[in-house]
Amino acid sequence: MSRRGFLLAFLLVSLVIAGVGSYYASSHPDGLEFVAERTGFLDSADDSPAAASPLADYQTKGVEDERVSGGLAGVIGAAATLLVAGGLFRVLRRRGPAEDDDTEPAEPAGARVPQARS
């Protein structure tokens, strides 16, 4: 699998999970919330200042259909994460091939020699 192909597939899997799979996720409280409820400190939680966000609680405000509303929120959130993290890592990265780099290290091709790097 080419690197580009792999990255595209990885992106697609993430978007499908966030956009489609998440609808089928369990809606039970998560471990912390459950423990908070059981032991009696759940009421100490305050509403987030972001509670009025159009994507609050992974639902898109103004979209009636629950499946579309949740899926859209998931895809937008995943895209926002990709934008922020991808942009950050682009800025932080070393330019050019790394010293330990080779374009296809997965293939132990004996013919590959260091000076073949461009």
């Binding site: 690197r3 990255l7 990885f10 992106l11 993430s14 990709l82 993290a85 991808g86 942009g87 890592f89 682009r90 932080l92 990265r93 070393r94 330019r95 050019g96 091939p97 790394a98 780099d101 374009t103």
Partner: peptide, 11 residues
């Protein structure tokens, strides 16, 4: 992070 790993890290 380098040219090869940065896109992977974003994903």
């Amino acid at each position: 992070l380098d040219d090869r790993t940065a896109p992977m890290a974003g994903l």
